[in-house]
């Protein structure tokens, strides 16, 4: 994590993306460009269906653009192979989903540790053991910060919405990513809990975490450094 220093964590240039729905081609993004400097908290606001989530998925290497370039930490994603994309997803990017997407079979601690396990499985045996211990310590630390240290052994279904989203945030942060991408993190929560989550995100940003959040709720964005508006597949600040 680092203070804003002018380096670009995410650099999206003239990205187009369209989906085919049967015979209809839906142009979702039409030449979107977005630069996010390190340490910034950027919000992308737009109505439902404006392409916010698509933009975030492209920035999070979960999807491929039709044209344009996306650079993460200065690396062009077009030039990276499957293994490299997996590694970037694992280490450089943390993703928070609107519907949390926690695994029902795992408890809170295990959900949080999962990305660390995926990461460590790429390393050698010795690293794995060390990695597992370190990951566990880091997960406990994160969950304590998020006020979930008494919920470690609970299953996601036993948690409230706010708690689940906090677990999801902890999971996104476990591998210490360069960028945290949050897709409507409060969209499924009541306004009070939503505000709590926003404060949390802000606190992480204050500690130097680069965050890109998309939301349709303009009232949430006052904590952000910069707000971009996505309309008809184009950004206008």
């Amino acid at each position: 994590m680092s203070r804003p220093n002018g380096q670009l964590a995410i650099d999206v240039q003239g990205v187009h993306k369209s989906y085919r729905l049967g015979r209809v081609t839906l142009k979702v993004l039409r030449g979107v460009s977005l630069q996010v400097e390190r340490g910034r908290f950027v919000a992308v606001v737009g109505a439902s269906g404006s392409g916010k989530s698509t933009l975030l998925h492209l920035a999070g290497v979960l999807d491929r653009q039709d044209s344009g370039t996306i650079k993460i930490n200065g690396v062009d994603m077009q030039s990276v192979g499957a293994a490299g994309r997996n590694r970037i997803r694992c280490r450089d990017i943390g993703f928070v989903f609107q519907f949390y997407h926690l695994m029902g079979e795992l408890n809170v601690l295990e959900n949080v540790m999962l990305p660390a396990m995926v990461d460590s499985s790429a390393l050698g045996w010795l690293h794995k053991r060390r990695g597992a211990k370190a990951a566990r310590a880091r997960a406990m630390d994160l969950l304590e910060k998020l006020g979930l240290d008494d919920r470690l052994k609970h299953r996601p279904r036993e948690l409230s919405g706010g708690e689940r989203q906090r677990v999801a945030i902890a999971r996104a942060l476990i591998n210490d990513p360069d960028v945290l991408l949050a897709d409507e993190p409060t969209g499924n929560l009541d306004s009070k809990t939503g505000r709590q989550i926003m404060r949390l995100l802000k606190s992480f940003n204050d500690a130097g975490q680069t965050i890109v959040m998309v939301t349709h709720d303009a009232s949430l964005v006052k904590e952000c450094d910069r707000v971009e508006h996505l309309r008809d597949g184009r950004l206008n600040a």
Partner: peptide
């Protein structure tokens, strides 16, 4: 399927 999505989002490979 959603778990698979999450696994891939956190960097799990196809083979994994």
């Amino acid at each position: 399927t959603k778990d698979i999505g999450v696994l891939k989002a956190i960097g799990a490979s196809d083979g994994g």
